[in-house]
């Protein structure tokens, strides 16, 4: 027996509420974060990820309260991302009860920030979030580029090379989102997931595009991800985490039941 593959429900939080949009628009309310977190904990979620999707100053305090409230009732690892830009931001989130923070745009803007954060708090709590879009043409070898600002801004950075660089700088984990797939419910970008997972030594979380339980299993079996992240299939009662684990276990994937 060995290490279990993880299922991580993702809670997009806006002004203290869980929301879920499709490709960053059409936001639907999905409930109170503490209640949602407790439900996933009871269903057997292995970790939870909170993304502060607006990350304005006012909302930042709201987010600290959300994390504090969840951390006093849910005893599994919590990752918080969105608007993490300084060492002080990280310290505040960890003090609120987060175990890991996700760093995205701030890493693109200044990669040294990841090194400083990892030196200060340890690699185990530094997750670098990568939003990637396929930029190669149909007949070319696949290539993905990093985008920031919710997928609106191209950076010119190659996703696989960027992931390797972030790990060299101290990232303890990569949260990899396919911007092409996010919100489409058509499955992960498995080629992207596999390319990054095989390029780095640290765990990779596949994200973006889950529409059904088989997509989660495929992320592990074909994408070689160490963990799979999904939002809407859990938020609106379509499936439970327990059903997802059962589906994965049936295909020989090691899970925590």
């Amino acid at each position: 027996m060995a290490l279990a593959k993880r299922i991580i429900p993702c809670l997009d939080v806006d002004a203290g509420r869980v929301v879920k949009g499709v490709q960053f628009v059409d936001i639907r309310d999905a409930g109170d974060p503490v209640e949602v977190a407790k439900r996933y904990d009871q269903q057997g979620a292995d970790e939870l990820t909170f993304l502060d999707i607006t990350a304005t100053h006012d909302n930042r305090d709201t987010m600290h309260h959300v994390v504090e409230a969840v951390a006093s009732q849910v005893f599994i690892p919590l990752t918080v991302g969105g608007g993490i830009r300084t060492v002080a931001d990280i310290r505040k989130m960890l003090n609120a009860g987060a175990d890991k923070v996700g760093i995205n745009s701030a890493a693109v803007k200044r990669p040294e920030f990841v090194r400083e954060a990892a030196e200060k708090f340890g690699s185990q709590c530094i997750v670098v979030a990568i939003d990637a879009k396929r930029v190669s043409a149909e007949n070319e070898p696949p290539r993905w580029e990093i985008f920031t600002h919710g997928g609106r801004q191209a950076t010119g950075l190659d996703a696989v090379e960027w992931a390797k660089k972030m790990v060299a700088f101290g990232a303890g984990e990569i949260l990899l989102t396919s911007m092409d797939k996010d919100g489409t419910r058509s499955g992960f970008d498995l080629e992207l997931t596999r390319a990054v997972s095989e390029a780095v030594i640290v765990p990779v979380i596949a994200s973006g595009g889950v529409g059904g339980l088989q997509d989660l299993a495929d992320g592990i079996l074909e994408g070689h991800a160490d963990a799979v992240l999904a939002a809407s299939i859990f938020h609106f009662g379509q499936h439970t985490v327990g059903e997802a684990k059962k589906k994965m276990a049936e295909q020989g994937i090691e899970v925590r039941l």
Partner: peptide, 27 residues
């Protein structure tokens, strides 16, 4: 992958008050 990150099984190698109520091989 290193770090070893996630839920793994623990085999209890001795009876101990701290293992009380915890099934052997729990993750």
């Amino acid at each position: 992958k290193v770090p070893h990150m996630g839920w793994n099984q623990v085999y209890q190698r001795q009876a101990h008050p701290l293992w009380q109520g915890i099934a052997d091989t729990s993750r």
